[in-house]
């Protein structure tokens, strides 16, 4: 492996991560302006044109704030928890294909961090690890509200992992591979001949709905943000956190939203593909990345839209929905897909 190969690999892995980190503060602006739009009020509009510099001001504020560690907290785990949350969120992006294969001087560069054979499993492994950051934050703060937030989060994430994984199993079944590039390639075909090779969302609409609802629970977003329900738990697991440690949780939440959106795009909406579009040259590859980014941005906006539209569930309602509604629906979807595969429709 030459130095150039190592450099290209590093770029492939780091590019999406860097883009997300740069876009992250902007997402917060979009969220707050979107909330203003939905609630018929201006939102942040004082710093810069349209309040565009508000995220910058917020970042400066986070850095300047006093960083407190409560004296009764478990110091090591208290500091470790926000890092764990952000780490688990960021590493997920390593296996998601974000563009077509680029060819530079005869060297083919697939635009994906690592095209591993266990792609879908890797994603779920990291999602299941993301609970540790929240649980440890809740426990190490040594605060009742934080602890309840952490415990809620662990029960919620474990419960919703089941319908989410079962729904994704339908996509894996139709593809015949855990590799995410295969999942994307499978969806780039045509609708006009059997087996159907278009976007998965059409034959597996039920699976998509289950995945979509579960994604809200997995990312702790409204209407399922019980671990940080401010009406009951102050701020839940991050009650005691301040300054950059708090900002890390905030970042982790937004990264999780971006990753969940990118996942929905990859599994159900054809990833970087678009009907009738085949990238042939450098510009085409660039266009494929733009298509992927636009699709992902759409779902990120849906996350925000839903947050300012729906009220919060009660905790028992949340668990009942997960176990008694979504899991049976996910299983039904799996049977449906299995039948389609058996009849050679998929």
């Amino acid at each position: 492996m030459s130095a150039a190969d190592v450099g290209i690999l590093a770029l492939r892995v780091l590019a999406p991560v860097l883009v997300i980190l740069i876009v992250l503060p902007m997402l917060q602006w979009v969220e707050r302006r979107g909330a203003g739009l939905i609630q018929d009020r201006p939102g942040p509009n004082r710093v810069g044109p349209f309040g565009l510099l508000q995220p910058l001001a917020d970042v400066v504020k986070f850095f300047m704030k006093e960083d407190l560690v409560p004296s009764h907290a478990d110091r090591f785990l208290y500091v470790l928890a926000p890092g764990l949350a952000a780490f688990a969120a960021l590493t997920t992006f390593a296996v998601i294909p974000y563009g077509a294969t680029l060819t530079v001087r005869g060297r083919a560069i697939p635009l994906v961090g690592a095209d591993v054979s266990i792609g879908v499993l890797y994603l779920f492994a990291l999602t299941s690890l993301s609970v540790y950051g929240i649980v440890l934050a809740g426990w190490s703060s040594n605060n009742k509200f934080s602890l309840i937030g952490g415990i809620r989060s662990s029960a919620q994430i474990i419960s919703y992992e089941l319908p989410m994984t079962t729904a994704a199993a339908g996509v894996v079944l139709a593809t015949g591979s855990f590799r995410l590039t295969d999942v994307v390639a499978m969806q780039s075909g045509s609708w006009l001949s059997l087996p159907l090779r278009g976007w998965t969302v059409v034959p597996q609409f039920l699976g998509f709905i289950v995945f979509f609802v579960s994604a809200f629970a997995e990312t702790n977003r409204l209407p399922f943000d019980l671990p940080e329900a401010e009406a009951e738990l102050v701020a839940g697991y991050h009650t005691e956190y301040s300054a950059m440690k708090f900002a890390m949780f905030y970042m982790a939440e937004y990264i999780n939203v971006v990753v969940a959106s990118a996942l929905m795009v990859t599994l159900y909406f054809g990833g970087w593909t678009f009907p009738g579009f085949t990238p042939t040259n450098g510009a085409g590859v660039l266009l494929s990345v733009v298509i992927f980014a636009l699709k992902t941005a759409f779902f990120v906006w849906v996350f925000m839209w839903v947050r300012w539209t729906l009220p919060r569930f009660r905790y028992d309602q949340l668990l009942r929905l997960g176990w008694k509604v979504l899991l049976p629906l996910a299983l039904l979807n799996l049977f449906w897909v299995a039948a389609l595969v058996l009849w050679k429709v998929l």
């Binding site: 266990i118 499993l121 890797y122 779920f124 492994a125 999602t127 299941s128 690890l129 609970v131 474990i158 992992e161």
Partner: peptide, 11 residues
């Protein structure tokens, strides 16, 4: 490896 992480570490 994936099963190890999903089942043991993650659940």
């Amino acid at each position: 490896a994936a099963v190890q992480v999903i089942v043991y570490a993650g659940a």
